[in-house]
Amino acid sequence: MILDVIGIWIAAFLTLAILSFVFGDNPIYKFAEHIFVGISAGFGVILALNQAIWPSIQMGLDPSQHVFIRTMTVVAILLGILTLIRLEIFTYIVPSLVWLSRIPIAFVVGIGSGISIVASIQGFIFPQTLATFLPVLSPEYMIDLSSPLNFLTSLLFTIGPLVILLGVISTLVYFYFSTEQRGVLLGIAKLGIIIMMITFGASFGYTIMARFSLLISRFYFLLSDWLNIIR
């Protein structure tokens, strides 16, 4: 119980310390920022050692494992050690060996690229392209004439696939630079700009919502958990 109270007071102090940035950069803000960075780094290192590195080594080198698994674990450990050569201190001690650190990085880049390229084509480009091949007017919705609002809503949903089609084509045309954009092409490209502006506006609106959600929840915490003014 007493630990909960101490925790709430610490959280309240750190919240106010971070909010004090509204008055400009100041020592209290810096103090809270440094605590955050320090704790994050410390916690991260311990968690990586405890949850990932040590259990993987233990499991991989277990005598019950097949010799291939144990050999690959040793290779992985060696690659991990080679990564450490990239630390600045080794550039002074053994500068001629620093190039060895590129080997594990090459592994990571190679595997990451291999997986990501296939995943992008299989899981993003194909399904998203297929999703634009729709009937121009959506059959899922019917025009509702019961009220002006229902009419407008149903109309927007019905023409949704048409908007998607126009949006995709006009945005692609905007990024088509193989010929000079004039006449019809310029008109379609301008529609592409409008579509992109609407997208950026929606994203910005969502971003404002996210930031204020966070601020509101912090105020709620201060007023309820800390000060007990609201329940």
């Binding site: 995943a119 899981g123 993003f124 971003t207 996210a210």
Partner: peptide
């Protein structure tokens, strides 16, 4: 989505931040 849903067909739903 791109790896697990596309390759293994796992049914998935998301809760995401507004951003």
């Amino acid at each position: 989505v791109q790896i697990v849903q596309a390759r293994y067909g796992v049914k998935m739903a998301f809760a995401v931040t507004a951003v």
